[in-house]
Amino acid sequence: MTHLPYIAGAYGLFALVASWLGLDARLRLHRTERRLRAVDPRARERATDFRAQDRAQDRA
């Protein structure tokens, strides 16, 4: 492969930035979900059955 250092640099940088953004978002989401469950008791019940929740919302 010609120009290998340049290609490796570009792909490497991409992997670095993309994985940092992705991992940061994922970890932050999980951390926040845990904290919310600890603070808000209702959040625990709400974890599943989205349709029923939306129906309940629309009735309210």
Binding site: A25, L29, T32, E33, R35, L36, V39
Partner: peptide, 21 residues
């Protein structure tokens, strides 16, 4: 889109946590 959605979900929840606290 996935990263922004995840960050936005976290931000909304962070706001709710702050209000609850």
């Amino acid at each position: 889109g996935a990263v922004v959605t995840a960050r936005l979900r976290a931000a909304v929840m962070e706001r709710r946590i702050a209000t609850l606290l």
